[in-house]
Design a protein around this nucleic acid. Structure first.
Lengths: 184, 184
DNA sequence: CCGTCATGGAACACGTATGTTCCACTACGA
DNA sequence: TCGTAGTGGAACATACGTGTTCCATGACGG
């Protein structure tokens, strides 16, 4: 498969990036808005993605790739379950507006199904090695992870004075506390 | 000001209730859908709320009232700051789909501004009495409260087997752990 | 210099949500 | 029995998003 002319790839990527940013803020935003944000004509957008559903599918695929990439960077096999989860949290935090987009997708549709199994395994490991409270069901831990991640992202968006490092520190502290077993 | 005939009040309330339920699931849902859910004609809906914005304003007002009512029931002046916050959490949890609606409203627009001050005072009290980690900024505590509340609501919606009591127990446990100061 | 490639704009048809008007039906009290 | 309040349905005009077609422009390599 030939690499369809570097120009087309860049245009396509610009559209997808713009779509992620705008859809995160308003899942019902118009294609015209997305095209404008990507600095291309609406005609061009339709040339790459015939229907809205096609664009959404491409955004979904891009999101899935970024999630997998983040999970790889987090090196989930290393350390205790809780440590791995917190590392993953830091990687996910850098996904930016993609977080809002997935949260708007109501908890899980396509992307999560990919590595959700992997995450649940990490959580189980944490419950076994004593770094995560076994009284917490794995999917509740997952819900907790996503909700605090989203809260941290929104917190950072509202208070520009808060540095990335500071917010990440708050997130790490509260999440690890929430998951810690009572005996520890 | 006369009480405009009990019938009109009941119709109006039915429309607002239906609007809260549907808008929580889809903020862009049509007025026709809301009218159908309220079991009234679209004409009637327009008779009570001339424009969509009018209905949204009424929903906003209703949400604000319910929040205030919940805060009153929580008796925020009693006990430590953390205890009061957890009581409030339980009251808020029963607001149901209103939680999703306010979360869709992106963290805070009108309703929160009402009692946000009161909540921040409770959080400050908790920081002072040692029941809340003083290292956590009050508005981060607030963000944490809302995000875990939303997570709990979604968790309950997805897993019908989880009883209200069980979910509320998980929420209380993780939230109080997240807020607990390290020394304790 | 010419051809193609990628693009952007204009215009159109179509569907849907919205807001309005008009008329008919039902319940209820005087 | 009559008049009124509350309602619902049908129809209409309007606005907006969508998907398509057609044509013009600028860039780039032969």
């Amino acid at each position: 498969m030939a690499v369809t002319s570097g120009v087309k790839n860049r245009t396509r990527q610009a559209i997808i990036d713009a779509a992620i940013d705008l859809l995160a803020g308003n899942p019902a935003c118009s294609l015209g808005d997305i095209a404008a944000a990507a600095q291309v004509g609406r005609t061009t957008l339709h040339r790459y993605f015939a229907e809205r559903a096609d664009l959404l599918a491409a955004v979904s695929a891009e999101g899935g790739e970024r999630l997998v990439r983040a999970a790889t960077l987090a090196d989930l096999e290393r350390g205790t379950g809780a440590e791995a989860l917190l590392r993953l949290c830091r990687e996910y935090f850098d996904l930016g507006s993609l977080l809002s987009l997935m949260f708007a997708g109501q908890g899980g549709e396509c992307w999560e199904s990919q590595d959700e199994g992997g995450l649940l395994r990490v959580i189980e490991r944490g419950r076994a090695d004593g770094s995560i409270d076994p009284a917490l069901p794995p999917d509740w831990v997952l819900a907790l992870l996503w909700s605090q991640l989203y809260a941290a992202w929104e917190y950072r968006a509202q208070r520009q004075d808060a540095s990335r490092h500071h917010v990440l520190d708050l997130l790490t502290r509260t999440l690890s506390n929430a998951l810690r077993p009572p005996s520890s």
